[in-house]
């Protein structure tokens, strides 16, 4: 596989990898670095790539593992990025009803979810993967994925409702 075909194969997945990394790592720079690193990893293993039936699922799995590793090492270094300072933002009166702010709220709620739920929500609701593909990436069975996804969806909605009622009172 030469460079051109590799880029051709990887290009459609690149954005998805970036979004997944962004969901987990939050910082745009780290997400970009992560994507770059994973692509290099894939490139160095390009000869084996043919053996993997579904390159996209494989690329996503590698990205997921890489980001989780990154988070782990950050925790070990006491450099964990904590975005808990968002509470004060939504006190402001009517602006928060703007859609943009609401969308931001969701990403903030998503940040509070456990990694597994973040990943599954990202893969299903944003990238629109089939459960079968998700189970490959996550290395989980479909039932467990559905349960986790359901928890994530409900949590997001409940948190959103909570924020709304705080806004009104």
């Amino acid at each position: 596989m030469n460079q051109k075909t590799f880029i051709g194969v990887v290009n459609p997945v690149k954005d998805k990898m970036y979004r997944l990394a962004l969901r987990l790592l939050i910082s745009k720079d780290s997400a970009e670095d992560a994507t770059q690193e994973v692509l290099l990893k894939l490139w160095s293993r390009k000869d084996k790539i043919k053996d993997y039936a579904n390159i996209e699922a494989f690329a996503m799995t590698v990205t997921k593992n890489y980001c989780l590793d990154q988070l782990k090492s950050k925790q070990n270094n006491n450099l964990k990025i904590v975005h808990t300072n968002y509470e004060s933002q939504d006190r402001s009166a009517f602006d928060q009803l703007e859609t943009n702010d609401r969308l931001k709220q969701i990403s903030l709620i998503l940040e509070t979810l456990p990694e597994q739920q973040k990943l599954i929500f990202q893969l299903r609701d944003i990238e629109e993967y089939e459960y079968e593909e998700i189970s490959k990436v996550m290395d989980m069975n479909e039932t467990a994925i559905r349960v986790s996804l359901s928890r994530a969806r409900k949590k997001i909605r409940i948190e959103l409702l909570k924020k709304d009622s705080y806004g009104i009172t």
Binding site: Q3, F6, I7, K14, D15, M17, Y18, R19, L22, K28, E32, T35, Q36, L39, L40, W43, T99, R102, L103, Q105, I106, S107, D125, I126, E127, R153, I156, R157, L160, L161, D164
Partner: peptide, 25 residues
């Protein structure tokens, strides 16, 4: 609230990887 959730999913899908990636570091 579902309206927000679904439009969030739609919006997030439009995020793209900025710039080109390099194969050789």
């Amino acid at each position: 609230e579902y309206e927000v959730i679904f439009s969030f999913s739609e919006e997030e899908k439009n995020i793209c990887h900025p710039g080109k990636f390099k194969l050789k570091s």
